[in-house]
Amino acid sequence: MSITSLVDYLKARKTEYITGAMEVTLSAITGFFIAGIILQSMGYNALSIFNIMITGGVSDLSHLAGKSAPLVMTGLAFSIPLMAGVFNIGGESQLYMGALAGLVGTYYSGNILIGLVLGFLAGAFWGWLMAALRVYRGINEVITAIMLNWTAYYFIIYLIIKYLPNPEKPYMSIQLPQSEMLSMNTTFLLSVLGALAAYYIIYYTDLGYKMRVSGFNPKTAQYSGFDPSKSILFSMALGGGLAGFGGALLVIGVSSGIDTTMTSLYGLGFTGIGVGLLGRNHPIGIIFSSLFFADLIIGGQWVELETGAPPYVSDTIIGIIVIALSAPYAYKKLVELYRLRRR
């Protein structure tokens, strides 16, 4: 796209951008305002807690990078299927599967690339499975995802304890040696590349275009000769694959293994839902929203140390701010989706 056409494009979308920006501003103010009132009424200094939360994450950029890398991926794992009209809350277990495959692949081959590719494929398979149950068996993907999330959770704990235990550390799986790991900064770089690749697929290939058309209206897709079922399968496989890639990145770049309590993996997929919504379903937006999320999550951990507020205080604040920021968009998307389903 040339510069002039880009300017044209931006001009044509002026209304959307302005309302979007206003919505975000309004939501941010509302979120911080409500959170502030709650903090004050609990007897904490709201401004200083906000300050810790926001600056706490930025103070260690490589931590921030390592924390946001998997979130970029799970954010995309939620958003891409949403473009095709599917509600993917299975990012959680797609990430698990990717983490497992990434660990096993890298550990036994000694090659990071193999680990990353296997991670992608494992996540893609898991996402595809959820979509297939919807497309071929008519099972609501949300229910499938909830059940498969737990299936994967216990399956991985079982595998780690039974087949991949770490002889030195009973709470750990086999671990990658430092020499076979990436730096946290590199994982973030790879996640950005992943987001750009997703952007290319969504906006520059027929698969992405068909997927978006199906998401807006499956009947239009049929009319145009695109199979909406294929789009659902494709979007879930792509989304799942990216979540799996994120899981592999996490293991290869940050955690080196998976602990038997799964704390290194747990929650990243669910957080991805917020990341995707806050990023307005756009790959580039998701990069920024995942940084924002990672910042709050890391900063939130400093709150206890600095102010003595128990950890649930910062969790609550994150929750309120995220809900406020993503609620208007989520509401619109849900209404759209619901309307389509009813037809």
Partner: peptide
């Protein structure tokens, strides 16, 4: 005495280092 609760095992090293 101050306290800190890490969110996940992946946060432990960066927090400790910082």
């Amino acid at each position: 005495v101050n306290f800190l609760t890490p969110k996940s095992t992946t946060d432990m090293e960066p927090l400790l280092r910082q």
